[in-house]
């Protein structure tokens, strides 16, 4: 294990920000920390990095305790903090060169690494720009470049894609996968479900400082009761429709979404849609639209917490 966290509890005064939290990160994987605002993702990272003191628990990085003066361990880590953090009066190139230089002494190698990072986040056009001349999304990309240029073994990325446009985000995500393919282990926090699902080999879902589930996206989705969701829009009102739908086999529950639009959730996923359509034709029920979906991570989150993760 590259990272091992057991029973971590961190309080800010009376507020329990991280609550008896466990985390294992294996070598070469992208581990996603998924949770809503304030669920404790950043606090977990800062505690692992020994920026924050904690009340109880055990943290091992590369199998060792990462004390603040373990420069040897820190040299193997890269961090992209959630908040922008670079020098305001240094250019894009100089900033990346500085951060890379904290880890890489050899000048030629450093130049190559800095150029690599600039390609990685696609800011070659802006090398000579000062940060204040960059747009919000470009600043984010610079923020990422400063944390990964030295090609660390272990990388923490704390919501790196916030404010980055869709195209650049895709580019960035693919490059993060690329980092993993070149051997880096990555801890990635996000509150975007799609990102977590697309990027992460394993996901830990956090809520209120606790880890409420973990596994691959598929494992998580299979782990919940809901197995399939069907949405139907009917042509007219039918009498006691909701009760009739509820009585069908495998149906977990029925939600009225709109005037004549219903969401039906099933607990088994075997030919639910076909059975449903047969039932409609037998009963003379007509519909305007019908489609089915497999459960999403949002359903996982909803089932575990009773809240939506999506705003």
């Amino acid at each position: 294990m590259i990272i091992e966290v057991n029973g971590l509890t961190k309080k800010y005064g009376d507020l329990v920000a991280v609550d008896n939290f466990d985390l294992q990160v294996a070598e070469g994987e992208i581990l996603g920390l998924l949770g809503p605002n304030g669920s404790g993702k950043t606090t977990v990272i800062n505690t692992i990095l020994s920026l924050l003191r904690y009340q109880s628990g055990e943290i091992k990085v590369f199998g060792e305790q990462l004390d603040p003066d373990r420069y040897d361990l820190k040299a193997r880590i890269g961090v992209v903090p959630q908040e922008l953090a670079f020098f305001t009066n240094l250019t894009v190139y100089q900033n990346i060169d500085y951060f890379c230089g904290l880890y890489i002494n050899d000048k030629a190698q450093r130049r190559q690494y800095v150029d690599g990072a600039i390609q990685y986040v696609d800011i070659n056009k802006y090398r000579k720009f000062l940060p204040k001349q960059l747009s919000g999304g470009l600043k984010r990309r610079l923020n990422v470049a400063c944390g990964i240029a030295h090609r660390p073994e272990l990388i923490f990325l704390d919501e790196p894609t916030v404010a980055v446009d869709a195209q650049s985000r895709q580019f960035l995500l693919d490059n993060i996968k690329n980092l993993r393919d070149h051997g880096s282990t990555i801890v990635y926090t996000t509150h975007y479900l799609e990102e977590a699902e697309y990027l992460c080999d394993r996901i830990v879902i956090m809520d209120a400082g606790r880890s409420i589930a973990s596994g691959t996206a598929n494992e998580l989705k299979h782990g919940i009761t809901v197995k399939e969701k069907v949405t139907v829009t009917f042509d007219q009102d039918y009498e006691s429709l909701e009760e009739r739908l509820n009585a069908l086999s495998n149906v977990l529950d029925v939600h009225k979404l709109d005037e004549r639009k219903y969401l039906i959730r099933f607990q088994e996923s075997n030919s639910n849609l076909k059975k449903l359509l047969d039932y409609f034709s037998r009963q003379g029920i007509n519909f305007l639209e019908v489609y089915n979906e497999l459960p999403s991570l949002n359903d996982v989150f909803f089932e575990l917490t009773g809240k939506e993760l999506r705003e």
């Binding site: 990095l49 420069y71 820190k74 961090v79 903090p81 670079f86 904290l102 944390g147």
Partner: peptide, 12 residues
């Protein structure tokens, strides 16, 4: 500052 935090986790 966040920059300070970032530098604190480097081997500086």
């Amino acid at each position: 500052s966040t920059l300070g935090a970032r530098l604190s986790v480097s081997p500086l």
